[in-house]
């Protein structure tokens, strides 16, 4: 019980910290740090998506960049059509409304995840890792060779998309939006984790034969989790496009998939606030060590190695002990 309370405390501190940094930055008039905090929130959101598949479901997807990048391209493409006034396919109009863009991004990434999941989940272990990577690389090279939307130059978003009641051109408003979405999705994740679905999913991760023997088909449960996972990461991609006002194939690259896995491992696999901790650590490394040396990723690698060897539960596991289950 002590561990459960401690995890709550860690989560609260992380949530408060992610809010406190931009508040301080706003007060000190340092908008760069507000942008960073928004970046942490969005990467954490993408991580929450992956955490559903990888952490709860044990599906080590090395292809989540596909969902992240496609979410980004949906935002970029819809915004560019809204800007130019030209219709998209089938005469559909673009949009500069985030709510519309998010819905489309999640619908498309959901369908993608259903297709990729249905094929990939016939395999497991290393084969699953490789097949998800292969799908993501297909999407990557498709984007690279699609000149209509920038090809390898990427696609700028000239005017940031809008959200009712907020002035998204202001970085503080945009941060609040990202932070709010992150908290809502974390709430949904927590709900899912403890529901019948979540209990079944985590049981399947540990022992699929036992789950089948009590009447739970592993495939269906895993597929639904994979789809939800892809949709969350797709949503994060759409938001990242609006934060940077730029989409490029690098969002779809395998390095992005790796970054998301690193976020999960650093923070704590399967832990509610693991992605928040992991995204915070990653961005902090990038900023502080990136300012000192070009080779900051070497130091990140060493930290990752230490976590894998000595602190399997990531930051959350280190502080709050192993996860507790029903």
């Amino acid at each position: 019980m002590a561990d459960a309370r401690r995890e709550w405390a860690v989560n609260a501190v992380l949530a408060a910290l992610l809010l406190a940094v931009p508040v301080a930055a706003l007060w000190l008039d340092e908008p760069f740090y507000i942008t960073l905090a928004a970046r942490v929130a969005i990467l954490a959101l993408a991580g929450v998506g992956l955490n559903l598949a990888l952490g709860l479901g044990g599906m080590v997807s090395f292809g989540h960049a596909a969902f992240f990048g496609v979410g980004g391209y949906v935002a970029g493409i819809m915004a560019s059509h809204a800007f130019s006034g030209q219709p998209m396919v089938f005469g559909l109009q673009g949009s500069n409304q985030m709510l519309v863009i998010w819905a489309v991004a999640m619908a498309i990434t959901g369908v993608m995840a259903a297709g990729i999941g249905a094929l990939s989940l016939r395999t497991s272990g290393v084969y699953f890792i490789m097949i998800t990577l292969a799908f993501a690389q297909m999407v990557y090279f498709f984007a690279l060779g699609w000149p209509a939307y920038g090809g390898d130059d990427g696609l700028p978003i000239f005017l940031r998309n809008q959200f009712p009641g907020l002035n998204t051109a202001q970085i503080w408003d945009l941060f609040l939006l990202c932070y709010g979405v992150l908290l809502v999705v974390l709430g949904l994740f927590a709900m899912l984790q403890h529901s019948r679905f979540g209990v079944a999913l985590q049981a399947i991760r540990q022992n699929p034969t036992r789950a089948a023997a009590v009447g739970i088909s592993p495939f269906g449960v895993r597929l639904v989790a994979f789809v939800l996972s892809g949709m969350i990461t797709g949503l994060a991609g759409a938001m990242m496009a609006d934060l940077t006002r730029f989409v490029s194939p690098s969002m779809l690259a395998w390095q992005m998939s790796g970054e998301l896995i690193v976020i999960i491992i650093l923070g704590g696999v399967g832990r509610l606030f693991g992605p928040v901790a992991g995204a915070g650590i990653l961005v902090a490394f990038e900023v502080f060590f990136g300012g000192l040396t070009q080779h900051w990723q070497l130091w990140l690698g060493l930290v990752l190695l230490a976590v894998v060897l000595f602190a399997r539960g990531g930051l959350i596991g280190l502080i709050a002990g192993p996860a507790r289950h029903v």
């Binding site: 709900m191 899912l192 403890h194 529901s195 019948r196 679905f197 979540g198 209990v199 079944a200 739970i216 269906g220 449960v221 639904v224 029903v326």
Partner: peptide
């Protein structure tokens, strides 16, 4: 028979 229930905590 209800594995696809996403809201109520089992515990």
């Amino acid at each position: 028979g209800h594995v696809f229930r996403f809201v109520r905590p089992v515990a």
